[in-house]
Design a protein around this nucleic acid. Sequence first.
DNA 1: ATTGGTAATGGAAACGTTTCCAGGTACGGT
DNA 2: ACCGTACCTGGAAACGTTTCCATTACCAAT
Lengths: 345, 345
Amino acid sequence: MASRSITIKDVAATAGVGVATVSRVLSGTGSVSPRTRERVLAAAKQLDYRPSALGRSLKLQRTGSIGLLIPDVTDPFSAGLADGVLECARSLGEHVILDVSRDDPAREAEIVDRFVEQRVDGIIALPARGGAAHWASARRVGVAVVFVDHGADTAGVPAVLADDRAGVRSVVEYLVGLGHRRIGFLGGPAATPTGRLRAEAFTETLRDLDVRPDSGLVVRARSSRDSAYAAAASLFQRRTDLTAVLAGNHLLGEAAVLVAREFDLRVPADVSIAMVDDVAWAELCDPPLTAVARPAADMGYRAGELLLRDPGRAGERSRRDGGRPVVLPTELIVRGSCGPPARTR
Amino acid sequence: MASRSITIKDVAATAGVGVATVSRVLSGTGSVSPRTRERVLAAAKQLDYRPSALGRSLKLQRTGSIGLLIPDVTDPFSAGLADGVLECARSLGEHVILDVSRDDPAREAEIVDRFVEQRVDGIIALPARGGAAHWASARRVGVAVVFVDHGADTAGVPAVLADDRAGVRSVVEYLVGLGHRRIGFLGGPAATPTGRLRAEAFTETLRDLDVRPDSGLVVRARSSRDSAYAAAASLFQRRTDLTAVLAGNHLLGEAAVLVAREFDLRVPADVSIAMVDDVAWAELCDPPLTAVARPAADMGYRAGELLLRDPGRAGERSRRDGGRPVVLPTELIVRGSCGPPARTR
DNA sequence: ATTGGTAATGGAAACGTTTCCAGGTACGGT
DNA sequence: ACCGTACCTGGAAACGTTTCCATTACCAAT
């Protein structure tokens, strides 16, 4: 059928030289006479020879591939992250093996194992919540790991993070500056580091600004669309006195917008809305949504550099200490969805 | 430093058996005594042995990987496609190598070459426009290829497509049914198969419905955000008599929404807007946007099946004939952005 | 003319698997 | 007691590279 594919041996035979010489010509190392080089090149071209990365990687003990693990490729932040990783990989001559955990630790563990078996040069992950054993295990066998977005529950893994705390602070300060005092917070799952952190930053900032804390204004949702919607609905219904809402992620932002519309609240006349995480549709809303942007692609790029450029940083060597995480700044993108608080409602 | 990684030889030595036996135990083939199996398993566990996919793939001449090539991972359709491919790959025990062409044929060619060198079992691509040589070349060396979204300019490659023509037809019929006669069309680049096809379907459908064609209502944009915006602005400005606009892709839909807002046109009271391609923000717009949905994830899944399940279909065998492409139906999602035409404007 | 050095070359080992093949052991049937 | 058979096992080859090392050839300098 499909004839056995062309190997370096075939090229050597056709060119009438040894395999070592062909290898030298093709890799450009060592010395070889111009005349021989010509012959080899001609033979390779004539046979349409394609070197096998398998043989090469086996010999070199290096595959030039990096494993990228995200919860969901259709999520805008994850996609932006992937974009950055791809760009970095390209500039480093690596390729990327992608898989999605769907935020399931068991599935994540399978994927990590597969990455290890593929002998990836390193793994970049936006880890699922829970289940840290497989990470430790991967590092134990010498695979470098870098976390992005949050440090998971695994200590000692180097990470690239956005400055969520400062991001939340900036938007809360902005809202308070506009005059808001009763600000609702729609938070992600308390089980996730990100959800926890942002909620903390929220209450902390209010405290620093001398705004009376009100736990009735803080609600949590699981990470589904339905749960986000339910949380937003319950908050808007229960607390008709709130004048602004901060959504802790883009799913919750979406829910807030939808619920506000459902309740016939004008934005920002009746209620101001802002969210953490900037996504494409924020600009298309009417009014466009004020949001805290995280530099997703930059984070991916930095993660790639951290993984492959800093020897030992992400690797086995520093098992106990990922060093200080790389923290990238967020940016408050002010659009039209926030204004002074409504007199009453 | 990092001690040489554990091989099957180490496991054999520890268990006091031959490497062949270890291989049999681990792969579950052949017969081995329970006692020996135990010893091998124990040794593997104790050493934390991780089989190398490199050695395995080299011997088996099969990597279990598929190459996925899309223009841009942050584009919602591409991401949905990737999601489907990942799911299919998982069910088939394959993994996915991802790269992005940024719609650049030269970059695409590099990536395809890399895939070939990696000896992927097959390639799924949403091909860039132009430049078909590398596809022919890949197939020549026996790599299966499946196209998604459009057939590119390369004949004979099997493909999974959405029924764009029917999709456009359905939305045009819907608009005409509402009473619209002067419908603007914002089209993608005429250089892309998709852009061409949708524009054709648009005028064709109008003709079939006995609506007077008006070439002044059709404008084309390049595939950048800026160009889309400019095209939409020029159309709205030039033709104040139009009562509805159909955007040929989501970038153009975005532009239409933005420009309508800019011109202070109420949707759908002053102008109706619809677009081809459904994306997350369509539901968040105010009003939510009517759109033609393509089943991105399904298309990816089907592409995976076509690639790996149909022997010879995507492969070398059928070089000259990709067979009839698999065509998946689109769905018209009616939301609130279209209504009867305004009396005047 | 001999030597020493350098450039060019090919053979062979190694990377980690799977699998063919041959050999060995145990056991049941005659 | 012998043979056939089934089960179990290990050695070795093969997959396609890269690179070490040895060999040859050539040239310049003595």
